[in-house]
Amino acid sequence: MNILQTEVRKIANGKPNITDEDLEKMHYLRAVLKETLRLHPSLPIFPRLSTQDVKIRGYDIAKGTIVFVNAWTIGRNPSKWTEPNEFKPERLLKSSVDFKGQDFEMIPFGAGRRVCPGESFVMATNELVLANLVNKFDWALPEGLKAEDLDMTECPGITIQRKVPLLAVATPFPS
């Protein structure tokens, strides 16, 4: 959080609102969002229909078979990610891996022809909202609660969500 706040506040330089030009300079912010999507894709499992007979790793998949792609597991693959269950945005600062469906190390929006058409809108909105929230507020856990006390258990649904909602205290940051 400190690294993110420092980056955002330095680039915002006291301005009341973050602009698109500011966002282009916020590399750590993008890394935080990528790492979040790697660990917690909004749609962890999605179906795909096989359009032809194929063989994958010795398995025959017939045309017309519904295959379920597990984006959650792909984002935590230990052969692709060191310490795959740890939140480390720094790993993505100098990495070319992206979430647009071209790199298969993380596919929170799907891949190929069926990639989510709202991906660009979602990411632009997330960047702008997160940058402004981090710029305008200091964030803390309620008194007596530590980060290691948070229950990060997820529950199933149409989209993934935390089983226990996050409670955070926002204190306005003087600009």
Rank of each mutant, 00 (worst) to 15 (best):
M1H: 08
M1A: 14
L4Q: 01
Q5L: 05
V8H: 01
R9Q: 01
N13A: 15
N17H: 11
D20Q: 03
D22C: 03
E24W: 02
E24M: 11
R30F: 03
L33G: 08
L33Y: 10
K34A: 15
K34F: 14
K34D: 14
L37S: 10
L39D: 04
H40S: 12
P41S: 11
P41Q: 12
S42V: 11
P44H: 07
F46A: 08
P47A: 08
R48L: 02
S50Q: 05
V54A: 11
G58V: 05
I61W: 06
K63T: 10
V69W: 09
N70K: 04
A71T: 00
W72R: 03
R76H: 07
N77T: 00
N77H: 01
S79T: 07
S79P: 04
K80E: 15
N85T: 02
L93V: 01
K94N: 12
F99M: 01
K100N: 08
I107A: 03
A111W: 00
A111C: 11
G112W: 00
V115K: 07
V122K: 04
M123D: 03
N126P: 02
D138T: 00
W139A: 07
P142E: 07
G144W: 09
K146C: 15
A147D: 13
E148S: 07
E148M: 10
T153Q: 04
C155R: 09
C155S: 12
P156A: 14
G157Q: 08
I160C: 12
P165F: 00
L167R: 13
L167N: 15
V169D: 09
F173I: 11
